[in-house]
């Protein structure tokens, strides 16, 4: 047992065996779960917005996984029903998150459907939520003398009124993604589990 090759071989074998439990078996189990029927794929703009969400690192403060009411009061906070694997069918890379410096966003589109709220909040979070610690994202906007046709003009409470504040394409995409975060449809997965439970 004191041979280098034996020690290293065993060490590698242990990792590969345990990866069977933690990686391979779950892979097969998740692959067998079909997407939630109420879930729609992202539009091009929403997907672009999701890429912005990933690139700006929103996941470091916001989770996307409401938990079971028996475990934590996420539902009472208006964050939605517990999420199921089928809710994430179009999500790559995953953005489940491990931090709630800010609230869970899995159903933010249902909770805050107003586009202008999101624009103003991204431009200056403290204009809508006093004492918020979220960074402001002024680089997603530009200030113009006059709005051009097709421009989204953003009204920020308490902001100076010289010229107009216009959302850049990145902001439009990001807000479209945030609005798309709505998983309030009934879950076929949860229904199925409940059915199986009642049969026993």
């Amino acid at each position: 047992m004191n041979k280098l090759s034996v020690v290293l071989l065993l060490a590698v074998a242990i990792l590969l065996l345990t990866a069977m439990t933690l990686v391979v078996v779950p892979y097969r189990q998740f692959a067998a779960i079909s997407k939630e029927e109420g879930l729609a794929d992202y539009t091009t703009l929403q997907q672009e917005g999701r890429d912005q969400y990933v690139s700006l690192g929103c996941v470091y403060c916001h989770s996307q996984q409401p938990r079971d009411p028996g475990f934590a009061p996420d539902g009472e906070r208006g964050w939605g029903r517990p999420s199921t694997p089928g809710d994430y069918a179009y999500d790559y890379p995953h953005q489940l998150g491990t931090m709630r410096t800010g609230p869970d966003l899995f159903n933010v589109g249902a909770r805050l459907p107003e586009a202008n709220w999101h624009y103003a909040h991204l431009y200056q979070p403290r204009s809508l939520v006093p004492h918020s610690v979220m960074p402001s994202y002024p680089f997603l906007f530009e200030r113009k003398e006059q709005a051009a046709p097709g421009d989204v003009v953003v009204k920020v409470p308490g902001s100076p009124t010289t010229g107009v504040l216009v959302a850049r394409h990145e902001a439009k995409a990001l807000v479209a993604y945030l609005q798309s975060l709505d998983h309030t449809y009934p879950s076929t997965f949860i229904d199925k589990l409940a059915n199986e439970e009642s049969k026993k």
Binding site: S55, L56, G57, C58, V59, Y60, C61, T101, P125, R126, S132, V133, M134, P135, S136, Y137, P138, F139
Partner: peptide, 19 residues
């Protein structure tokens, strides 16, 4: 986190990039 309006003019220095 305590001065959220500091260094916000460019995406490269936003919290979600630096963390």
């Amino acid at each position: 986190l305590t001065f959220p309006d500091w260094l916000v003019s460019h995406a490269a220095v936003t919290f979600g990039r630096l963390r």
